[in-house]
Design a protein around this nucleic acid. Structure first.
Length: 703
DNA sequence: ATACGCGCTTTT
DNA sequence: AAAGCGCGTATC
């Protein structure tokens, strides 16, 4: 028995690797759980978190007797330890998404922390503290703001909120999640603001999550304007490492009152957390797509439950998972069914393309063109939306049939006319457009299909004099380009805005009275069962860009060009009837045993050849069958299939779907199965059939 | 993950 | 001979 403490430290090691992620170290001083420490690991010194006390626990996770326990390098005492509930959130996240605790816990800390030692950190913390003191002193002199008047529905929602708060205070409920179902323009943000104000007045912190970095500046402005006396910080990957560390530290010390951020902010350390808002909760951006594939929305719900604080999920088109839970009464539901002021929802017009005369290669039908001309005459703005950037999705030779295939992917390279390139949107490979067909030398190579560049070109030709701008990932490359272009739209310098789905999210265009979707049908027949849900949300959200003030609302229209005007999805859109759409979808999901009535995981394998990827997945399936795991936990394994785009950057991609009626059973199955897969991998590398990588995606969004 | 050693190849 | 790289092994 020595007089030094023995502790378990979480370090950044992947799950199920030969190295456990909780390593034992000794420390002369007592270090409380949750402390940040720097520890020797081989020849390196790495950042770790104290996760357990190993002094009297010699269980299976203690190290073999022949390894010497090293002392920690130092404890980073300049920062208080991470709380028990923070660690519980990370423990849950790691277990649920089948990663190691240390990997997840360390990776969600600001990256800059890894570089600092105790001295450097202490210096940083002391310096930012001083700067903040000055700022707060300066700002507290500001004048109070005038609150906008609430409409009846907002009042009702806030009355329900007050009830929830008092129930939570008296421990009369443990149901903490609320769906705020409000159409676009119904004043959801004002409701968030009032809820946040309530929480801040209680001396608590609020966390507000948004799907995209692009949306943080405008929301930050709005919160800043309302809460001048409180400290607001943002957390997202667009910040510089030093800014991100600073904001994280302010939150962790309890000095920031309100944190606004993207999905990674769900892990912010918030010692006095009193509210989590997840705006546009249905948005797929909340799902991390690599590493630990967590859903920030689902983790927010879990965190709210852990800490017994309200979580508000806001959307006009909730995810069917959320909608189902609100229908079952597991989530409370606050409704905001109408728009602010006299504004009404835009009228939805479906253009039956089958009945339109074919005008050579024209993207815009005659009636839509007339509607655009009408807006020009009124001086209104229009938004024309096409989810395909570039000039044309493929280039082909009219003589020999050559097409612009990507050499590394099973996809066509997209023709970008502006910079005369062929670009693969999957692997990024780029070349100049050939003068002639590379196969037969024919000079006549032609674009097939249409992208936003071509749409912009056609509209300019059809509507001479109209001021047309294009916003997509290509046109806003470079810092601040998006804000500049949006500024031009807001200033009324633009009549027609052409864009991809980037322009359909969140922006408040005041003079817009027409939104048109050029060709949304493609996702109607996708193999992904969530495609209709996504399409409905996208079109509804796009429609929400029109008629945001009363003056334009009356004549606002959402146009959809379609070959399937009788499709149930479009009929529901036409009626603005989300409930009907969701009901029909949920019925289909139930009979097909799909989420939210079943739980899924996806095992993905990438290899040089499709055979190698398939062999790995088949070996994985065999292991589940021979060891009786699949039967024991009643999970179903489907046959391995290639991804819709099978080859990307010379990697063949296959996946295997795992389904279960029970979330618990699926979890237990994965926990037993995944360690076996690591063995398969090493076996296969001995047999010279190596797979490049594999990954498990729990609750996958796209299948 | 990351570091490093070992044996093999390629380069000087 | 020196430098380069693909594995295999160890990390409390």
């Amino acid at each position: 028995v020595s007089d030094s403490q023995r502790i378990q430290v979480a370090i950044e090691a992947p799950a199920h690797s030969s190295l456990s992620d909780l390593l034992d170290y000794s420390s002369e001083q007592a270090v409380p759980l949750g402390s940040l420490v720097r520890v020797p690991l081989g020849k390196r010194v790495v950042l770790g978190l104290v996760w357990g006390d190993a002094s009297f626990d010699a269980g299976d996770d203690s190290p073999p007797s022949d390894v010497a326990i090293k002392p920690i390098t130092e404890a980073l005492t300049a920062l208080p330890p991470l709380s028990g509930s923070w660690r519980a959130l990370l423990d849950f996240c790691a277990a649920y998404y089948q990663r190691s605790t240390g990997e997840v816990a360390v990776s969600v800390l600001p990256p800059e922390l890894r570089k600092l030692d105790q001295a450097g950190l202490a210096q940083r913390v002391a310096k930012w503290l001083r700067a903040e003191d000055k700022r707060v002193a300066h700002e507290s002199a500001l004048t109070p703001v005038v609150l906008p008047e609430l409409h009846a529905e907002q009042e009702t929602a806030l009355a329900q909120w007050a009830l929830l708060q008092s129930e939570l205070k008296n421990a009369a409920t443990d149901s903490t999640t609320v769906l705020l179902h409000g159409v676009t323009g119904s004043g959801k943000t004002e409701v968030y603001l009032r809820m946040a104000a309530d929480v801040l007045q209680n001396g608590q912190q609020a966390l507000v999550l948004v799907p995209e970095i692009n949306l943080t500046p405008q929301l930050e402005d709005r919160f800043e304007a309302r809460f001048a006396q409180y400290k607001i910080v943002s957390l997202h990957s667009g910040l510089t490492p030093v800014q991100r560390l600073k904001n994280w530290v302010l939150a962790h010390l309890g000095q920031a009152d309100l944190v606004l951020g993207t999905r990674l902010a769900v892990f912010a350390s918030l010692p006095r957390l009193g509210l989590i808002v997840v705006d546009e909760e249905h948005d797929p951006s909340y799902k991390q797509q690599d590493g630990a594939r967590y859903s920030a929305r689902d983790l927010a719900v879990y965190r709210g439950h852990l800490e017994q604080i309200p979580v508000v999920l806001g959307s006009a088109t909730p995810s069917l998972e959320t909608w189902q839970r609100s229908q079952e009464g597991r989530y409370r539901c606050f409704h905001l069914p109408s728009r602010i002021g006299q504004a009404v929802l835009p009228k939805v017009r479906l253009v039956n393309m089958a009945q339109q005369p074919k005008v050579k290669n024209q993207a815009v039908s005659v009636p839509l063109l007339h509607a655009l001309q009408q807006r020009l005459a009124w001086g209104d703005q229009s938004l024309v939306f096409l989810n395909r950037r570039g000039y044309a999705p493929v280039l082909h030779c009219t003589d020999c049939g050559w097409k612009s295939a990507c050499a590394h992917c099973s996809a066509w390279r997209v023709f970008h006319k502006l910079d005369r390139t062929l670009r693969c949107h999957h692997c990024g490979s780029t070349d100049r457009v050939p003068r002639a067909c590379p196969d037969c030398g024919n000079l006549d190579i032609a674009p097939m299909g249409r992208g936003t560049e071509q749409l912009e070109e056609q509209l300019s030709a059809l509507l001479p004099g109209a001021r047309i701008a294009r916003i997509d990932a290509d046109s806003v490359r470079g810092k601040g380009a998006l804000q500049t272009q949006l500024g031009a739209v807001h200033a009324g310098e633009i009549d027609i805005l052409v864009g991809t789905q980037m322009v359909t999210k969140g922006h408040d265009f005041r003079r817009m009275s027409l939104v048109a979707a050029i060709n949304p049908d493609t996702s109607l027949f996708s193999s992904d069962f969530r495609a209709p849900e996504r399409l409905f949300a996208l079109l509804q959200q796009a429609a929400g860009r029109a008629g945001r003030d009363a003056e334009h609302a009356e004549r606002s229209e959402m146009w959809v060009q379609t070959w399937n005007p009788q499709h149930a999805l479009y009929r529901a859109l036409h009626q603005h009837d989300f409930a009907a759409f969701a009901g029909a979808q949920l019925q289909e999901r139930q009979s097909a045993a799909l989420p939210p009535f079943a739980y899924l995981a996806l095992l993905r394998a990438d290899a040089r050849s499709a055979e190698a990827a398939r062999a790995f997945l088949q070996a994985a399936t065999a292991l589940a069958q021979t060891q009786d795991l699949a039967q024991t936990y009643s999970v179903t394994l489907c046959a391995p299939v290639p991804l819709p785009v099978a080859r990307v950057a010379n990697a063949e991609r296959m996946q295997l779907l795992i389904e279960s009626r029970s979330r618990k059973a699926l979890q237990a199955f994965l926990a037993r199965w995944l360690p076996l897969l690591h063995e398969v991998r090493s076996q296969q590398s001995r047999l010279k059939q190596p797979i490049l990588r594999w990954a498990i995606d729990v609750d996958p969004l796209a299948i």
